[in-house]
Amino acid sequence: MLSSLGSPRQAAAQLMNFGLILSTAFMMWKGLSVITDSPSPIVVVLSGSMEPAFQRGDLLLLWNRNVIEETSVGEIVVYNVQGKDIPIVHRIIRKFGTGPEAKLLTKGDNNPADDTELYAAGQDYLNRKDIIGSVVGYIPFVGYVTIMLSEHPWMKTAMLGIMGLVVVLQRE
Protein backbone atom coordinates (compact mmCIF):
# COMPACT_ATOMS: atom_id res chain seq x y z
CA MET A 1 0.00 0.00 0.00
CA LEU A 2 2.83 2.35 0.77
CA SER A 3 4.19 1.88 -2.72
CA SER A 4 1.37 4.15 -3.82
CA LEU A 5 3.57 6.91 -2.40
CA GLY A 6 6.08 6.42 -5.19
CA SER A 7 8.28 9.32 -6.17
CA PRO A 8 8.59 12.49 -4.08
CA ARG A 9 6.45 14.29 -6.64
CA GLN A 10 3.72 11.69 -6.37
CA ALA A 11 3.80 11.87 -2.59
CA ALA A 12 3.70 15.67 -2.76
CA ALA A 13 0.76 15.50 -5.14
CA GLN A 14 -1.19 13.23 -2.84
CA LEU A 15 -0.48 15.38 0.17
CA MET A 16 -1.58 18.36 -1.89
CA ASN A 17 -4.88 16.68 -2.79
CA PHE A 18 -5.61 16.17 0.87
CA GLY A 19 -4.59 19.72 1.73
CA LEU A 20 -6.75 21.12 -1.06
CA ILE A 21 -9.83 19.32 0.20
CA LEU A 22 -9.41 20.98 3.60
CA SER A 23 -8.46 24.39 2.23
CA THR A 24 -11.28 24.41 -0.34
CA ALA A 25 -13.80 23.64 2.38
CA PHE A 26 -12.31 26.42 4.51
CA MET A 27 -12.25 28.92 1.65
CA MET A 28 -15.86 28.13 0.71
CA TRP A 29 -16.81 28.86 4.30
CA LYS A 30 -14.85 32.11 4.19
CA GLY A 31 -16.42 32.98 0.85
CA LEU A 32 -19.85 32.54 2.37
CA SER A 33 -18.70 34.69 5.30
CA VAL A 34 -17.62 37.45 2.96
CA ILE A 35 -20.84 37.32 0.94
CA THR A 36 -23.13 37.35 3.98
CA ASP A 37 -20.79 39.69 5.88
CA SER A 38 -21.05 37.41 8.88
CA PRO A 39 -18.14 35.78 10.70
CA SER A 40 -20.22 32.65 11.04
CA PRO A 41 -22.91 32.43 8.34
CA ILE A 42 -24.18 29.01 9.39
CA VAL A 43 -24.88 28.19 13.04
CA VAL A 44 -26.44 25.32 14.89
CA VAL A 45 -29.13 25.86 17.53
CA LEU A 46 -27.82 24.53 20.84
CA SER A 47 -30.73 25.23 23.15
CA GLY A 48 -34.51 25.10 23.19
CA SER A 49 -34.94 28.79 24.06
CA MET A 50 -36.50 29.56 20.66
CA GLU A 51 -38.98 26.69 20.59
CA PRO A 52 -41.32 26.15 18.83
CA ALA A 53 -39.59 28.10 16.05
CA PHE A 54 -36.25 26.35 16.31
CA GLN A 55 -35.20 23.19 18.05
CA ARG A 56 -31.87 21.92 19.21
CA GLY A 57 -29.92 20.69 16.20
CA ASP A 58 -31.50 22.99 13.60
CA LEU A 59 -29.09 24.54 11.14
CA LEU A 60 -29.59 28.28 10.63
CA LEU A 61 -28.52 30.33 7.63
CA LEU A 62 -27.61 33.92 8.47
CA TRP A 63 -27.46 37.16 6.55
CA ASN A 64 -25.73 40.17 8.04
CA ARG A 65 -26.15 42.95 5.48
CA ASN A 66 -28.75 45.69 5.74
CA VAL A 67 -29.25 46.25 2.04
CA ILE A 68 -32.93 47.14 1.99
CA GLU A 69 -33.84 47.88 5.57
CA GLU A 70 -32.39 47.92 9.04
CA THR A 71 -32.49 45.02 11.43
CA SER A 72 -35.75 45.62 13.27
CA VAL A 73 -38.11 44.34 15.95
CA GLY A 74 -39.48 40.85 15.29
CA GLU A 75 -36.41 39.58 13.48
CA ILE A 76 -34.63 36.54 14.84
CA VAL A 77 -30.93 37.31 15.16
CA VAL A 78 -27.79 35.56 16.28
CA TYR A 79 -25.55 37.63 18.54
CA ASN A 80 -22.34 37.29 20.46
CA VAL A 81 -22.14 38.60 23.99
CA GLN A 82 -18.94 40.54 24.69
CA GLY A 83 -16.40 38.25 26.27
CA LYS A 84 -18.42 35.09 25.65
CA ASP A 85 -17.80 32.80 22.74
CA ILE A 86 -21.17 31.09 22.30
CA PRO A 87 -23.54 32.70 19.79
CA ILE A 88 -27.15 33.01 20.92
CA VAL A 89 -30.25 32.87 18.70
CA HIS A 90 -33.05 35.10 19.96
CA ARG A 91 -35.69 37.51 18.73
CA ILE A 92 -35.42 41.30 18.87
CA ILE A 93 -38.26 42.63 20.98
CA ARG A 94 -37.33 46.28 21.47
CA LYS A 95 -35.35 48.81 19.52
CA PHE A 96 -34.43 52.38 20.44
CA GLY A 97 -32.90 54.70 17.93
CA THR A 98 -31.71 53.95 14.41
CA GLY A 99 -28.49 53.15 12.62
CA PRO A 100 -25.45 51.49 14.08
CA GLU A 101 -26.02 53.15 17.45
CA ALA A 102 -29.52 51.73 17.94
CA LYS A 103 -30.04 49.90 21.22
CA LEU A 104 -31.54 46.44 20.85
CA LEU A 105 -33.14 44.13 23.39
CA THR A 106 -33.60 40.44 22.67
CA LYS A 107 -35.59 37.59 24.19
CA GLY A 108 -35.95 33.86 23.53
CA ASP A 109 -39.50 32.93 22.47
CA ASN A 110 -39.48 30.12 25.00
CA ASN A 111 -37.86 32.10 27.83
CA PRO A 112 -39.94 33.78 30.54
CA ALA A 113 -37.72 36.89 30.67
CA ASP A 114 -35.70 39.00 28.27
CA ASP A 115 -31.99 38.60 27.77
CA THR A 116 -30.58 41.29 30.06
CA GLU A 117 -29.32 38.57 32.36
CA LEU A 118 -27.47 36.84 29.53
CA TYR A 119 -25.60 39.98 28.51
CA ALA A 120 -22.18 40.77 29.93
CA ALA A 121 -21.95 42.47 33.32
CA GLY A 122 -23.03 46.10 33.01
CA GLN A 123 -24.45 45.57 29.52
CA ASP A 124 -28.15 46.38 29.23
CA TYR A 125 -28.62 46.22 25.49
CA LEU A 126 -27.03 45.09 22.23
CA ASN A 127 -25.61 47.21 19.45
CA ARG A 128 -25.90 46.36 15.78
CA LYS A 129 -22.26 45.26 15.72
CA ASP A 130 -22.90 42.56 18.34
CA ILE A 131 -25.22 40.82 15.90
CA ILE A 132 -23.59 38.35 13.54
CA GLY A 133 -26.64 37.85 11.37
CA SER A 134 -30.39 37.56 10.96
CA VAL A 135 -31.87 34.14 10.37
CA VAL A 136 -33.03 33.82 6.75
CA GLY A 137 -33.43 30.07 6.50
CA TYR A 138 -33.09 26.86 8.42
CA ILE A 139 -32.65 23.13 7.93
CA PRO A 140 -34.02 20.96 10.73
CA PHE A 141 -31.96 18.26 12.50
CA VAL A 142 -28.89 18.45 10.25
CA GLY A 143 -26.95 20.29 12.92
CA TYR A 144 -27.10 17.34 15.28
CA VAL A 145 -23.99 16.01 13.58
CA THR A 146 -21.97 19.00 14.77
CA ILE A 147 -23.53 18.84 18.24
CA MET A 148 -22.34 15.24 18.44
CA LEU A 149 -18.91 16.19 17.16
CA SER A 150 -18.47 19.05 19.61
CA GLU A 151 -19.77 17.06 22.56
CA HIS A 152 -17.46 14.16 21.75
CA PRO A 153 -14.26 15.77 20.46
CA TRP A 154 -12.59 12.41 19.79
CA MET A 155 -15.12 11.87 16.98
CA LYS A 156 -13.70 14.92 15.23
CA THR A 157 -10.16 13.58 15.46
CA ALA A 158 -11.23 10.14 14.29
CA MET A 159 -13.18 11.50 11.35
CA LEU A 160 -10.33 13.73 10.23
CA GLY A 161 -7.86 10.86 10.58
CA ILE A 162 -9.97 8.47 8.51
CA MET A 163 -10.50 11.07 5.82
CA GLY A 164 -6.79 11.76 5.63
CA LEU A 165 -5.89 8.09 5.44
CA VAL A 166 -8.38 7.41 2.66
CA VAL A 167 -7.13 10.30 0.57
CA VAL A 168 -3.46 9.44 1.02
CA LEU A 169 -3.78 5.72 0.39
CA GLN A 170 -6.20 5.87 -2.50
CA ARG A 171 -5.33 7.41 -5.81
CA GLU A 172 -8.30 8.75 -7.71
Binding site: R9, A12, M16, G19, L20, S23, T24, F26, M27
Partner: peptide, 20 residues
Protein backbone atom coordinates in the same frame (compact mmCIF):
# COMPACT_ATOMS: atom_id res chain seq x y z
CA UNK B 1 3.46 19.55 -16.05
CA UNK B 2 3.64 18.09 -12.55
CA UNK B 3 5.69 21.00 -11.24
CA UNK B 4 3.22 23.58 -12.48
CA UNK B 5 0.37 21.59 -10.95
CA UNK B 6 2.18 21.33 -7.62
CA UNK B 7 3.04 25.02 -7.66
CA UNK B 8 -0.58 26.02 -8.31
CA UNK B 9 -1.94 23.62 -5.72
CA UNK B 10 0.51 24.46 -2.97
CA UNK B 11 0.26 28.20 -3.44
CA UNK B 12 -3.52 27.88 -3.14
CA UNK B 13 -3.09 25.80 -0.02
CA UNK B 14 -0.57 28.21 1.54
CA UNK B 15 -2.87 31.13 0.80
CA UNK B 16 -5.73 29.47 2.64
CA UNK B 17 -3.41 28.54 5.50
CA UNK B 18 -2.39 32.22 5.77
CA UNK B 19 -6.05 33.21 5.62
CA UNK B 20 -6.79 30.79 8.43
Amino acid sequence: LTDVRLALGYSAFLLSAACF
